[in-house]
Amino acid sequence: MILAGVLLLFALILPALPLGSWQPFALDTAQFAFLLSGLALSWDLLARTGQLSLAHGAFFGLGAYTAALAAPALGTLPALLAGGVVAAAGSFLLGLATLRLHGMYFAIATLAFSEVMRTFVLKAGFTGGSIGMIVAPPFDGRFPLGGYYLAVTVLGLCVLTSYLVSRSRLSYAMAAIRQGEAVARVLGVPVVRVKLVAFLLSSALAGLAGGVYGMKTLFLSPYDAFSLGRAVEALVIPIFGGLYTTTGPLVGGLLLVGLETWLRLRIGEGYLVVYGVLLILAILFLPRGLVGWFSRRRGGRHA
């Protein structure tokens, strides 16, 4: 939590640092890193119940499209909230149908959901279909740093939720479900209800992050907003950083986006090959992520 505070402070003063001509680029990259870390934190929240979701790209996209469509009528902040609510509503429907499924089967169902959502947005008239849609900047562009600070806020919210959940009664219930659902049931854990709460929280946060993302890129297309790549990033980051923790997805997200950007600048074409190799190495040699590696080096046991 101290680390999160330091990072937050850094995020707040970053726009004031003398970066010269690099500043716009640094802020843009940081904003993207914050949103992806937020998405990763939200994914991890659900993963704590043992459910592997491939629908987080879709929740992200749902939030992005809803916020973009609602912003002209409602204003920026209510529109973002609406994005979170719509994403949560989507997860509620999906959850009712699928939360009794386990592991692989749940993952496949969420994958199907995300494809259905993309097809829907592709075919529906009001979304601009495959051409995509133009998104207004937050607060009608009155504050140049508005989008940046919205991303900081969303990330802060994700960190706070993740931390509070890990300190609450829910965390025990989640850990029990993850490690043995039948035992959790006889120990008195209302399994489906806990999963549903985790799913709702998780998707609402993903939707919020998506909303800010849309207002950052100023343009949305179904291929980008609902891409499977985003769903994969949402799970790669926590695995790289350390599953079921707050620090893991947070640090993992910032580092991975930083690394990816740096490689793109240094190597240019084909940088994803190097990025992929580094990820594979990380998974081979850091089976419990950065957090697990650090706590082992300190001689402590990761709880």
Binding site: A175, G180, V186, L187, V189
Partner: peptide
């Protein structure tokens, strides 16, 4: 209360954490 066959403990958690998981629905 039900102690399932084969114990079904959470092996990578401490004794105390296992116990606390058994009271997941109780107040602090």
């Amino acid at each position: 209360g039900h102690v399932p066959e084969g114990r079904q403990l959470f092996p990578l958690m401490s004794v105390e954490e296992n116990l606390l998981l058994g009271a997941a629905f109780l107040a602090w």
